[in-house]
Simulated assay, not measured.
Amino acid sequence: MEMPSDVPRYVIALGSNRPGRHGRPGAELAAALGAIGGVRAASRVVTSAPIGPSIRRFANQVAMIESEERPLDLLARLKAIEAAFGRRPGQRWGSRVIDLDILLWSKGVWADRRLTVPHVAFRDRRFVLDPLRMIAPDWRDPVTGLTIRQLHYRACAVDRMPRPS
């Protein structure tokens, strides 16, 4: 049986919809997991339609990592990994080799002008909630108090609602 760890945990969202030096998007995700390190759990890769102008489907994954880093220090490290993978600033929601976002932090909430944790949009995104439910169904959102399982159920219910004519 695994003993609980006192090391803070983060949940990171990974996404890719453009090949890079590591290969196709799924290979980019695998390489990014290695670059991030401290991985305690990783979901399987799921695909989703893009949001915004990109026409390529995304490969998405979430990973739970252990890290003593403060949220802003982890954010800086993730941005450095993105740059090393060839991501360049550009069009919002455009195609990208890698996208790394902090979703959740075991110490709760963090907010300043550079970073908000929990991620402001994670509750509404099936491409995040589907893989997140695989690895952390009982993690509680510190803002709503709901578990990931409950948030996922809500997102699925919204998807099943009839569309207005």
Rank of each mutant, 00 (worst) to 15 (best):
D6K: 14
D6L: 12
D6N: 14
V7E: 14
P8W: 07
R9S: 13
R9H: 13
Y10R: 07
G15R: 06
S16Y: 01
R18I: 09
R18T: 13
R18P: 07
P19K: 04
G20Y: 05
R21C: 15
G23M: 03
L29V: 02
A30V: 13
A32V: 06
L33E: 11
A35I: 11
A35C: 13
I36D: 04
G37H: 08
G38D: 02
G38M: 05
V39C: 03
R40V: 14
A42Y: 01
V45T: 13
V45D: 06
V46R: 07
T47S: 14
S48P: 01
S48H: 03
S48T: 10
P50H: 04
P50V: 02
I51T: 10
G52C: 08
G52K: 10
P53K: 10
I55Y: 12
R56N: 14
N60G: 04
N60H: 07
Q61P: 05
A63M: 01
M64W: 11
I65N: 03
E68N: 13
R70N: 14
P71Y: 01
L75D: 01
A76D: 13
A76L: 10
R77S: 10
R77K: 13
R77C: 07
R77E: 11
L78Y: 07
K79W: 10
A80L: 12
A80G: 15
I81C: 05
I81Q: 07
A83P: 13
R87S: 12
P89N: 13
G90T: 08
Q91E: 15
R92V: 14
R92C: 11
R92M: 12
W93Y: 15
S95G: 14
R96N: 09
V97A: 11
V97N: 07
V97F: 06
I98H: 08
I98E: 06
D99P: 03
D99Y: 06
D99I: 09
I102V: 15
L103K: 05
L104I: 00
S106V: 03
K107N: 15
K107R: 15
G108D: 08
G108R: 09
D112K: 11
D112V: 10
R114N: 15
R114T: 14
L115W: 02
L115R: 06
P118V: 06
R123I: 01
R123C: 00
D124G: 15
R125P: 00
F127I: 04
F127S: 04
F127Q: 00
V128G: 04
L129N: 00
L129P: 00
L129H: 00
D130E: 12
L132A: 02
R133L: 12
I135Y: 07
I135M: 11
I135F: 06
D141S: 05
V143L: 15
T144L: 05
T144I: 03
L146V: 11
T147E: 03
T147I: 06
I148F: 04
I148C: 04
